[in-house]
Design a protein around this nucleic acid. Structure first.
Length: 215
DNA sequence: CTCCCGATAT
DNA sequence: ATATCAGGAG
C-alpha cells in the first residue's frame, strides 16, 4: 500500500466519522487511572459494557491506593459483566499496587513502564498514552483495527506488532490516534467481522477485500 | 497454542 | 448454537 492511497483512505474515513466535536474516545473516563483500568477491562468485551461498570467501580475505588487494597471478590462482583472477571479483577488490583509502589500512585507515561503492569500489553499502553496524555507512541491495534486494516490492504500481516509497524509507516504521526478511531468506527458500523456491508462502504473503491469479493 | 468468561448479535 | 466483542498471560 502506497502512502498516497492510504492518505486518500484516511481523508474519506475522516469525512465520514470525524467532526469537530469528536473526542476520539469510546471509553468514558475522567483521568489517567480510569482509562488505564477501563482499557484493561475492555479486553474481549464492548466499550458500553465497560462504561456501564464505571460508576460502581470508581465510586468505591477512586484511585490506585483504594483499588490496591480492595478485596478481589468485591471487585469481581462489580466488573463481572465485562467477562474474564477473575483475571481482570486480579490485574487491576495488582496494577494499582504497582502504581503505588513503583510510580508514586501515578500512571506512568512511557510504553516500557506501562507494559510492566499486569493486564497491560502494547494495545492497552497505546490507548493510555494517546488518550490520557496525548502521546503518539504508536497505534493501538485491537480486533477492529486488525480486521479492517487487513481487509483494506493497509497491511499483509496478521501479527498486531507488525500491523502497527505497517500503519505507523503509512500515516503521519499526528494522524495515528485518529486512524485508530477511524478504523474502529468503520469496523463497528460497516466493516463488521461477520457480514461486512460493503455496498454502503465509503472506501470500497480502495479496498482489497471488496475487489476480491467482486472478481 | 490455550485459557480466561459474560453479553449480545446472527 | 455459535461467533464476536477497544487482549493479555502462560
Amino acid at each position: 500500500m502506497q502512502r498516497e492511497k492510504a492518505c486518500r483512505i484516511y481523508s474519506i474515513l475522516a469525512a465520514e466519522y470525524l467532526d469537530e466535536d469528536t473526542n476520539l474516545n469510546f471509553l468514558d473516563f475522567d483521568n489517567p487511572f480510569q482509562i488505564l483500568v477501563m482499557t484493561i477491562l475492555s479486553a474481549q468485551t464492548t466499550d458500553n459494557m465497560v462504561n456501564s461498570v464505571k460508576d460502581d467501580l470508581f465510586s468505591k475505588y477512586p484511585d490506585p491506593a483504594a483499588l490496591s487494597q480492595a478485596k478481589q471478590e468485591d471487585v469481581e462482583t462489580i466488573i463481572k459483566k465485562t467477562g474474564f472477571f477473575r483475571a481482570k479483577a486480579k490485574n487491576i488490583i495488582e496494577s494499582s499496587k504497582i502504581l503505588c509502589s513503583d510510580f508514586g500512585g501515578e500512571v506512568p507515561r512511557t510504553m516500557e513502564e506501562l507494559v510492566t503492569l499486569p493486564g497491560v500489553g502494547r494495545k492497552t499502553a497505546n490507548i493510555v498514552l494517546n488518550h490520557a496524555f496525548g502521546i503518539d507512541e504508536g497505534i493501538a491495534v485491537d480486533t477492529h483495527v486488525k480486521r479492517v486494516s487487513w481487509r483494506i490492504g493497509l497491511t499483509d500481516n496478521t501479527d498486531p506488532v507488525k500491523i502497527e509497524m505497517d500503519l505507523t509507516a503509512l500515516f503521519p504521526k499526528d494522524a495515528w490516534g485518529k486512524m485508530n478511531y477511524l478504523l474502529i468506527s468503520h469496523g463497528r458500523a460497516i466493516c463488521t467481522a461477520r457480514k461486512p456491508d460493503c455496498e454502503r462502504c465509503v472506501i470500497k473503491d480502495f479496498c482489497r477485500y471488496f475487489r476480491e469479493q467482486n472478481s
